[in-house]
Design a protein around this nucleic acid. Structure first.
Length: 432
RNA sequence: GGAGAAGUGGCAGAGUGGUUGAAUGCGGCGGUCUUGAAAACCGUUACCCCGCUUGCGGGGUCGAAGGUUCGAAUCCUUCCUUCUCCGCCA
């Protein structure tokens, strides 16, 4: 969430940022009503001034009564006048509560404003920053991962649907083993070579956690919710891992903190039907290794670059061609100030697929989740900056491996880096 | 799931209706002493909001939310968490 004082003092800047995101229309009915917010802010401060005055009066009288009781004097008169002050306070309080609730509700729905380096515009303004590797060439028509997985009998789409519905996946045999191998490979890479600490958090979280990272209140429809327990299934490990430090003040000398976590992720993907939902492209439950950082504000953009490097290394070691996209203002997610997507190339689909998203949230999440830091002298220095990135999401990585490493007869070569995790298996072949 | 106990500052721990943001100890920071360090001694040591503004004044915060009262850390209700015992269970 943005700082109300910042909005008050930098209204034009905020307006421009929101317009760049298209969260705020140039004229007429804007989804985010800044002028209403500013009016409420003025009202609030006027009301609080009045209320504090009354409370000061009350406190003075209260102390006087205390003294009189101690000195065995009769405080009757004083009590009567204080009663009056108290009732005035009671009369004023609801108005202030109402104004503060309104302010809060609006603030919670205002997205982060894009960083200056983010290109302004919609999808067309996304920028390709770099490319790595070459798409493989075949002397045959490469199959899609769906054809390959069914041929090799390592993914059972029909029975996955039988168990839970469409776009739920049943991995089998070496398919299941490949998922496990990828998870272990990534966790080892990030913990041993990139300096992340491994976390294994709950995948059910409460409302406060979902609000802290910004999924609530706006994205409620996209999440699985258990009403009996008031818990949500996480759409990404970003939620529990960032919330590890909710309502905490971290020590400056402990920063930066690097955490990595494997979790299963759940997304309802409500309203996203069409050809993109075939196979592993868009599934309701998937596996992901996530990277999360808590850093000092002055380092956060440097940290974003190194986070991106850590995620890219996964594909480089697996030898999967990728390109890096700098997202435009219109394509940014709610809480992000800047975001890079990593897209892998998949030969069978002949498409670039988003397999990682690396974002700097600046203090947007830290403010919501109340994650501050203090210096060595114990003085509070403000909110930390939080970042996260997929390191990486499994299904589309799986698609790229199956489609890029396929052979003419429909077998799939295991990428060399994964073989130690696959019990030495070099080739996934049709069993029967 | 049942019964009981408890949640106070970085930590430990007092405080059961009235000048309590909160004794005391430890820790932290600054200083005196010392060649340096330790010890000792002195001082200092939470956060948020509002207003004038390098400081001050006012307000709020004792697990959370409500309630009683002129007045709540202290009394009442609900919830959350932790601990102990019992039951159930991968």
């Amino acid at each position: 969430m943005l700082d109300l004082k910042f909005i008050r003092e930098n209204t034009e800047k905020v307006k421009a940022g929101l317009q760049a995101r298209r969260a705020c229309l140039p004229a007429g009915r804007a989804p985010v009503d800044l002028s209403r917010l500013l009016k409420l802010d003025t009202d609030r401060r006027a009301l609080i001034g009045k209320l504090d005055e009354l409370k000061a009066e009350k406190n003075a009288a209260n102390q006087a009564i205390g003294r009189m009781v101690k000195d065995k004097l009769d405080p009757k008169l004083k009590i009567a006048s204080m009663k009056q002050t108290a009732s005035q306070i009671d009369a004023l309080q609801p108005a202030i509560n109402k104004v503060e609730e309104d302010i809060d509700r609006i603030l919670m729905t205002i997205p982060n404003i894009p960083h200056a380096s983010v290109p302004v515009g919609g999808l067309e303004a996304n920028q390709e920053i770099s490319r790595w590797g070459k798409p493989p060439t075949f002397d045959f028509k490469p199959k899609t991962h769906i054809e390959l997985a069914e041929h090799l009998d390592i993914i059972d789409f029909q029975r996955g649907a039988k168990l839970s519905g469409s776009n739920f996946i049943l991995y089998k045999d070496l398919g299941a083993r490949l998922v496990r191998a990828l998870v272990n490979f990534m966790l080892d890479l990030h913990t041993k070579e990139h300096g992340y600490r491994e976390m294994l958090p709950p995948v059910l979280v409460n409302t406060a956690a979902m609000t802290g990272t910004g999924q609530l209140p706006k994205m409620k429809e996209d999440m699985y919710y258990l009403p009996d327990d008031d818990l949500y299934l996480i759409p990404t490990a970003e939620v529990p891992v960032t919330n590890i430090h909710r309502d905490e003040t971290l020590h400056e000398e402990d920063l930066p903190l690097y955490y990595t976590a494997y979790t299963v992720c759940f997304r309802r993907e409500a309203g996203s039907y069409g050809k993109d939902t075939r196979g592993l492209m868009r599934v309701h439950q998937f596996d992901k290794v996530e990277l999360v950082k808590f850093v000092k504000p002055e380092n956060s953009y440097h940290e974003l670059e190194s986070l991106l490097t850590d995620a890219r290394r996964v594909f480089e070691i697996l030898e999967i061609p990728y390109r890096v996209i700098l997202l435009s203002s219109g394509d940014l997610s709610f809480a992000a100030a800047k975001c890079y997507d990593i897209e892998v190339y998949a030969s069978g689909l002949d498409q670039w697929l988003e397999a990682s998203s690396c974002s700097n949230f600046e203090n947007f999440q830290a403010r919501r989740a109340n994650i501050a830091y203090k210096g060595k002298d114990g003085k509070r220095k403000g909110f930390v900056h939080t970042l996260n990135g997929s390191g990486v999401a499994l299904p589309r990585t799986m698609i790229a491996i199956l489609e890029n490493y396929q052979t003419k007869n429909g077998d799939v070569i295991v990428p060399p880096a994964l073989r130690p995790y696959m019990g030495g298996v070099e080739m996934i072949k049709k069993k029967f």
